[in-house]
């Protein structure tokens, strides 16, 4: 199962990943990060197809794509 991890330390909540995800499985976190942002989170990991588009789009290189 592919999934992603968002590094809350790097994410600045531009949500470009949210906008490009073809499965719309990303969203905004409800909790604020140490940096003061509401980072992107994978809301529905079960929908993730591991296409890496969020990784490619992320300007802060905050996303790691994994498969378990």
């Amino acid at each position: 199962m592919p999934r992603i991890e968002v590094d809350a330390n790097r994410c600045k909540a531009c949500y470009l990943c949210v906008s490009v995800c073809p499965k719309k499985c990303l969203g905004k976190s409800k909790t604020i990060s140490k940096k003061g942002y509401f980072p992107a989170v994978q809301e529905r990991p079960q929908d993730c197809i591991g296409c890496k588009m969020c990784y490619v789009m992320c300007p802060d290189v905050a996303i790691t794509v994994l498969k378990d």
């Binding site: 330390n9 790097r10 600045k12 909540a13 531009c14 470009l16 940096k35 942002y37 789009m57 992320c58 300007p59 802060d60 290189v61």
Partner: peptide
Amino acid sequence: PMHYCAGCSHGV
């Protein structure tokens, strides 16, 4: 972490 503003193309 990069100092660029959120969404800045520089990071990409």
